[in-house]
């Protein structure tokens, strides 16, 4: 299976190279550093959340509430700012909301024993509702310049804060997943929770940590969004959860848990971003772009299946 995963990543890498080469040939602007950074910037919140979502899905769970948590965090920031709270305090409160929201998800999933699909569907609605209550129909803006700059300007040369945060978070989660005991348990619990329980692993605690991390990172991403756009509204990050999950699944993470890598998610992020960028540079409309991503997702599910049946067939014949 490890080999198969590696070859799945190989396939993703090959697809990426093709897209990259095609884009570079078709449009000279593509290779410019400005375009490359811009490409990340436009989706940076989603791809940050996709990193944690990778862990959640490997753990055989799902968090549908991430988009709403991003919205809630962004709107809470706007609300607090408007009510005269100092932005650093507001940021801390928003991250706290993320932790709390994640803990609520985790509590219902691990202590009450409800499926994460149901719990996070409920909080998807609930968090969004809270966001809209706070902001109503207004847009809130005029944040301090330093805050907007974090989202819009380069911090290290042309590289913006959010991209640095993405790279750091990627590095941390990569080490956790590939090298740490926590990462190992993430796979084992996702592969077979009962086996993990019988091996003395506290699976409830593990899932609780994952959902809190998911909530906190989503809240962080919501703040990045507020800084990048410079204003918030009740519909911030609406429907982002589906894009996030699409990226993770396209990266080869199994929706049934126990399988997938963070590198797969990264390749998938790069493919989606470059594909969209390439199509945009060719003046292909957003709707068609979305359709193409959808086709890719279906292909990502179908292709391994075909390869699996091929690999199985000779064995069954000999049995």
């Amino acid at each position: 299976m490890i080999k198969r995963l590696q070859s799945w990543e190989g396939l993703l890498a090959a697809v990426l190279v093709v897209i990259f080469a095609f884009n570079a040939l078709m449009t000279p602007e593509f290779l410019g550093i400005g375009n490359q950074i811009n490409l990340f910037q436009l989706s940076i919140e989603k791809i940050i959340v996709a990193l944690v979502m990778t862990l959640i899905i490997i753990n055989a769970e799902i968090d549908l509430s991430v988009g709403s948590m991003m919205g809630l965090s962004a709107c809470a920031f706007g609300y607090l700012f408007q009510n005269g709270i100092a932005p650093p305090v507001a940021i801390a409160v928003c991250l706290g909301i993320g932790v709390l929201g994640g803990a609520v998800n985790g509590w219902f999933i691990t202590r009450v024993g409800l499926p994460s699909l149901v719990v996070t569907l409920a909080t998807l609605i609930g968090f969004r509702g809270l966001a809209r209550v706070m902001v109503e129909d207004r847009g809130i803006g005029d944040f301090p310049d330093w805050f907007d700059a974090l989202g819009q300007k380069g911090l290290l040369g042309p590289i913006p804060f959010a991209l640095i945060a993405f790279v750091l978070l990627f590095a941390v989660i990569y080490v956790v997943l590939e090298r740490s005991g926590f990462g190992r348990k993430t796979y084992v619990i996702g592969s077979n929770r009962d086996v993990a329980e019988f091996a003395g692993i506290d699976t409830a605690r593990h899932k609780m940590i994952l959902f809190i991390a998911s909530g906190a990172v989503s809240a962080f991403a919501g703040l990045l969004y507020a800084a990048r756009v410079g204003a918030v509204r009740g519909d911030v990050a609406l429907g982002f959860e589906l894009d996030v999950i699409t990226i993770v699944l396209l990266g080869g993470v199994s929706i049934f848990g126990g399988k997938g890598t963070l590198v797969g998610t990264l390749l998938s992020v790069l493919i989606v971003l470059n594909l969209r960028n390439g199509m945009a540079l060719l003046n292909i409309t957003g709707h068609i772009q979305t359709g193409v991503i959808g086709l890719l997702l279906i292909a990502s599910v179908v292709v391994p299946r075909i390869r699996l049946t091929r690999a199985k067939a000779p064995k069954e014949a000999s049995a």
Partner: peptide, 13 residues
């Protein structure tokens, strides 16, 4: 199958 081994994961794990 149900309680003993995570069948899809490596022997070492």
């Amino acid at each position: 199958r149900k309680l003993g081994l995570a069948m899809a994961l490596p022997i070492r794990w």
